[in-house]
């Protein structure tokens, strides 16, 4: 079929002609790009692996000791005298404080994220945004002070409760920001589809938008958790520290408790070799803590996704 092309408008622009040489060049460029990406990944991964290996190799011995888990620390004399000593109370305290922080920060943080993303015209929205940004930029130690002023002062004692609140302050802005971010990329059409069914706004957000953003929200919570779990500063004058198991379960909330990051620090600066070893052990547990949390929540979100299928 003969087609006459007018001289002014060419039928096809030949910007990128496909010739064998041209193709080879493109493949080559593709390879180089992938190579660079792999390199970048290694640059990130290698220091991480070095840290993990260093901590584990130094601390694994302490952790494998059963008394590390079953005993509390006591005074330095215990360790020096070769008697049973460990960080059982620290692990318990950390579980309580971190668990409490999650319990507070996840619902409130997600709620704040929903508010920021879904109700931009609400009169409280600007105030919330300023509050969240302020909290986000605040040094962790000041969050400890905040919890000190809010809880330790009125209660008259250091406590696991105040430690949990301090860590919640660390997590809150991260969870809120992350939630807002993921909700914003959920297509607007989903909300409209829900509203068109005559569903109230909050139902639409809770049952259609939030589930669609689930994976991103969980990621945000994990990042926040990992961040908070490693913080020692906010716990210094809230959870404070404790060398012993508490007498009653409730005392972990109402009395001073030990936490891994703070204990790690105090062990590391102590003058006793036995305590240094235990400090490395605390590092291993802390790492394990964060890794286990990551794996479990990843599996949990994956499973729910598969259940849908």
């Amino acid at each position: 079929m003969a087609v006459t092309t007018s001289s002014t408008t060419p039928r096809r622009t030949r910007l990128a002609e496909v010739t064998p040489a041209n193709l080879r060049r493109r493949y080559l460029r593709d390879r180089v790009m992938i190579g660079l990406l792999v390199l970048a990944t290694l640059v990130v991964l290698i220091p991480l692996l070095v840290i993990v290996w260093y901590v584990v190799s130094n601390g694994i011995q302490a952790v494998l000791e059963p008394t590390f888990w079953t005993s509390d620390l006591g005074s330095p004399a215990r360790a020096l005298g070769g008697r049973d000593t460990g960080l059982g109370h620290t692990v318990l305290g950390t579980l309580v404080v971190d668990g409490l922080a999650l319990l507070i920060a996840v619902p409130i943080g997600i709620g704040a994220g929903i508010m920021l993303s879904e109700y931009p015209d609400h009169p409280l929205n600007p105030a919330l945004r300023i509050l969240n940004d302020t909290l986000n930029g605040m040094p962790a130690i000041l969050k400890g002070l905040l919890a000190f002023a809010l809880i330790v002062k009125p209660m008259g004692t250091f406590s696991g409760l105040s430690g949990g609140v301090a860590l919640a302050f660390v997590m809150l802005p991260i969870v809120a920001r992350a939630t807002e971010g993921v909700l914003r990329i959920i297509p607007w059409s989903i909300r409209e589809a829900g509203l068109a069914l005559g569903l109230p706004r909050w139902r639409v957000v809770l049952n259609t938008v939030l589930p669609a953003a689930r994976v991103g929200v969980v990621t945000g919570v994990l990042i926040a958790f990992a961040r908070a779990a490693g913080e020692a500063a906010p716990l210094l004058f809230t959870a404070f520290g404790n060398n012993f198991f508490s007498s009653a379960p409730l005392r972990y909330l109402t009395g001073p408790v030990d936490t891994l990051p703070a204990r790690l620090y105090s062990l590391a600066i102590s003058p006793y070799r036995e305590w240094h070893a235990m400090g490395w052990g605390a590092g291993v547990v802390l790492l394990g803590f964060v890794i286990v949390t990551f794996v479990v929540s990843r599996l949990a979100t994956r499973q729910r996704h598969q259940a849908d299928m």
Partner: peptide
């Protein structure tokens, strides 16, 4: 009720 120009299933639901 309304049917939109583009399909809008709720992605996480069956």
């Amino acid at each position: 009720g309304m049917v939109f120009q583009k399909p809008t299933p709720f992605p996480t639901m069956s």
